[in-house]
């Protein structure tokens, strides 16, 4: 049995992300986009649309969804999946917000 351990790291404060905005976190395996929705829930996905690799961080946040800035694919931030009829998904990273600090769960090396 394999056990995946998460390293929880602080990435920023909630206030560092504009409401309905996003921030980009550079990472070894490619950028991570961190979104703040209107209800202050925070989501993190790889910053690369499954369609043509558009930077999702630049899209319009609506509900718990993001519209890609290049061709308007809509990705559900809760599941990482593209809205039908488009088909594709994004690796989604675990996030938690505690005392106004955004923590990201990275898979331990």
């Amino acid at each position: 049995m394999s056990v995946t351990t998460l390293d929880w790291v602080q990435v920023c404060r909630l206030d560092d992300i504009l409401p309905l905005g996003a921030r980009v976190l550079p990472a070894a395996k490619g950028e991570i986009a961190i979104f703040r929705c209107s209800d202050d829930s925070v989501f993190a996905v790889r910053n690369r649309c499954p369609h043509k690799h558009g930077p999702l961080s630049e899209g319009i946040v609506h509900g718990h969804k993001i519209a890609c800035p290049l061709h308007n694919w809509v990705i559900d931030l809760e599941t990482g999946e593209a809205a039908a009829p488009d088909i594709g998904c994004m690796p989604k990273l675990p996030v938690r917000v505690e005392d106004g600090v955004v923590w990201l769960g990275m898979v331990a090396a």
Binding site: V9, D16, L18, R23, L25, P26
Partner: peptide, 13 residues
């Protein structure tokens, strides 16, 4: 204006 829009976060590894 919108300064945070243009700055990536500091990398954490």
């Amino acid at each position: 204006v919108d300064a945070s829009e243009f700055q990536p976060l500091a990398a954490r590894n």
